[in-house]
Design a protein around this nucleic acid. Structure first.
Lengths: 302, 302
DNA sequence: AGCGATGCCCAAGTCTCCCTTATGCTCGGA
DNA sequence: TCCGAGCATAAGGGAGACTTGGGCATCGCT
C-alpha cells in the first residue's frame, strides 16, 4: 500500500472521471493533463486496494467500489466546500463575530461610532459588547473570552510593561481635568495645580482611577481626603455640582455628561490618559478583529 | 495564497490540535513530530486566509474560523472514514456483489458448487446469476452488465481470437458424446465415427451447438438432417430415447440428465469442448471477481 | 482498407511540498 | 535562577505530483 489514505483531491478527480467518462475530459475539467489524472486514479486504486474503474473498449465504467467512493465523495466534497465557504465568509468579513470589552466611559461615543461604521461597511459581521474596567477586561482578553479590550493607561504609570505581550493600539489622547462647584474659589481660574486642591474633600471615580488619583496627589505632596467614590461618572459630576467636593476626571468622561453647577478647570501640569485598544497578537491578524480595530481608530480620529 | 484548497489531512491535524490543545501532543497522537504539526497548521491558516488558533500564553484556543473548521471536520472525516471502510469491506471480501452470467448447462453443478463455497468463505459477498448463451453473455460482459461470463468453445474453432481482449480462465475440459436410442444398431459399440451417423435423423441442441455440429459433420463429409432443435438438453435426451433420432451432446450436459432408453457412445475422433470463465482484465483484479473465479476453478477441479 | 483523431499508458525529468533533525526562544514552575 | 515543556524557524533530504514526449489501440471517416 503506497498511498495510505484517501485524499480529498483523489475524490475530486474520481468524481470528474465518473462525470465525464474519460481521463482526458476530466483533465480538461480539472485544469491538468491526462497523465496527471491517470496517475491520480492509479494512486487512488492503490489506496482502495481494488480497481475502481473498468476500461472496456472506449468507455469507462465504475466498479462497485468506485460507485461507493463516488457516492461518498458527493457528501465529503460538499462538506469541504461548505467549510471553505464558511471560512472564506469569515475571512472576507461577510460573517464573523467580534467580542468587545470596553470600560464604561469608552463605550459612550467611541464604540457606538465604530460599530455603526463596521456594520455599514461589513453588514455580515456581528459585535458583542460588554463592559469591564481595565484590569478585568485585560484578564478577559488573556483568558480568550473576548477579542478586543478597550482600556486606558496614565502617562508614566509604573506598570508600563503590563501589556507588552499584547497588541496596543492607541486610539485617543485624553487628559484629566479638575471639577469644582460653581462658586468655588477656584471656579474662575484658567488652570489649577493639584496642590491647590489639597485641602478639599474629594470625590473619586473607579478603583483604578482612584488609585491613580492617590498616586498623583502624593506626587504633589499631599494625600487626598476621599469622601465619596463611585464608578458612575454622572454621579461624580452630580456630587461635585452639589458642592460636596472636588474631583479630577478624564475629559472625555466629563464631555458626555451634562454638568450643571460644575466648572471644569485645566490641570497644571497636564496629566494625560491614553485610551487604547488591546488585543492578542494572533487575534490582530483575524480580519474581523482587524476591521474592528480599524473602525475604532477611524472613530477616534473623528 | 500558497495552499489553495483545504485538504483532509489538514483537518485531521487541526482536529488533533483542538482536541489536545497542543502541537506537541497532536504530533504524538498523529505519529509525527511537532514541527510537522506546526507547518501543517501554518499551511492551513494560509489556505483559510485567517488565523485559526490563538496562542495565549500556554494555552491554545480556536478562533471563530477555527471552530467552524473543526465543526465541519467532524462530518468530513467521518464521511471519509466511512468511504474507506466501505471500500475496504469490498476489497476485503466482506461485502460486494458479483454479477455472473452462465450458459444453461453450466449452471447445473459447477455454478452452485462455486457459489456455495464462496458464500461459506466470504459470507458478506453476494452473487447474482443470469443465464445466457455464449454470444449473448460475452456481449453482456463487454457492455459492463456483468462481471463474469461462463462460456465454452470448441477445440479448433475458427473464432479462437474472439476473446483475446478478455481474461479466459479454463475450467473444464468437456467432450462430445453420441446419443443413440437403445436398440439402435450402434448402441453396443464402444465408439462411433461421426460418419457412421451420416444418414440418421438428428436432434440438435442450442444454436451455437447446432452450428458447431453442422461444422464437424461437414468436416466428416456429410450434412446432418436435423429434425429437431432445442436448447433444452433433457428434451434432446428424451427425443433420442423416444427413437426420433440421434444426437451429439457435451458429456457434462448429459451427465446431469437421467437418460432413459438412451445409450451414450464415445465419438471417434474425440471432439473437445472447453468450458471457461471470461472476464475483463480490469475486473479480474477486483477481489470479489477474483474470489469467484477461484471458487469456480476449485469447483471445476472437483 | 487506409487514415486521422481520440484517448490511454509509460518513461523520464523537474519541481514542489512535506517531513525530519537541529537550534533558539519563551513561558511557567521549582 | 535554573530547568523543563512547548513552539518557531532553518536546512536538508526524500517522496510525490505534474509535465513533456512517445507509443499504441480504438473508432470513425473517406
Amino acid at each position: 500500500m503506497l498511498g495510505r489514505v484517501i485524499e480529498a483531491r483523489h475524490l475530486r478527480v474520481l468524481r470528474a472521471v465518473a462525470a465525464t467518462g474519460s481521463f482526458s475530459a476530466a483533465g480538461r475539467e480539472l485544469g491538468c493533463t491526462q497523465p496527471a489524472v491517470s496517475q491520480q486514479m492509479k494512486a487512488l486504486e492503490a489506496s482502495a486496494g481494488t480497481p475502481l474503474l473498468v476500461r472496456s473498449g472506449r468507455e469507462m465504467r465504475l466498479t462497485q467500489a468506485g460507485e461507493a467512493l463516488v457516492r461518498h465523495a458527493t457528501g465529503i466534497l460538499a462538506g469541504l466546500t461548505a467549510a471553505e465557504e464558511e471560512v472564506a465568509a469569515i475571512a472576507g468579513l461577510r460573517a464573523g463575530r467580534v467580542r468587545l470589552v470596553s470600560f464604561p466611559s469608552g463605550s459612550s461615543s467611541l464604540v457606538p461610532t465604530a460599530l455603526a461604521a463596521l456594520r455599514a461597511e461589513h453588514p455580515g459581521t456581528r459585535v458583542s459588547l460588554e463592559e469591564a474596567e481595565p484590569p478585568k477586561s485585560v484578564e478577559t482578553l488573556r483568558a480568550g473570552d473576548c477579542d478586543i479590550a478597550l482600556a486606558f493607561r496614565y502617562e508614566g504609570a509604573a506598570s508600563t510593561d503590563e501589556w507588552d505581550d499584547l497588541v496596543v493600539r492607541p486610539l485617543l489622547a485624553d487628559r484629566l481635568v479638575g471639577l469644582v462647584p460653581e462658586g468655588h474659589r477656584l471656579a474662575r481660574t484658567e488652570s489649577v495645580a493639584l496642590g491647590d486642591l489639597a485641602g478639599e474633600p474629594w470625590i473619586a471615580g473607579c478603583p483604578r482611577c482612584r488609585g491613580h488619583l492617590v498616586d498623583i496627589c502624593e506626587g504633589a505632596g499631599f494625600s487626598p481626603r476621599i469622601d465619596f467614590a463611585t464608578d458612575d461618572y454622572p454621579a461624580v459630576v452630580g456630587l461635585v455640582g452639589a458642592g460636596l467636593g472636588v474631583a479630577v476626571l478624564p475629559e472625555l468622561a466629563v464631555e458626555s455628561v451634562r454638568a450643571k453647577g460644575v466648572r471644569t478647570v485645566a490641570l497644571e501640569p497636564v496629566v494625560r490618559r491614553e485610551i487604547v485598544a488591546l488585543t492578542l497578537p494572533d487575534l490582530a491578524r483575524v480580519p474581523t478583529v482587524a476591521a474592528t480595530l480599524a473602525e475604532l481608530a477611524k472613530a477616534a480620529a473623528r
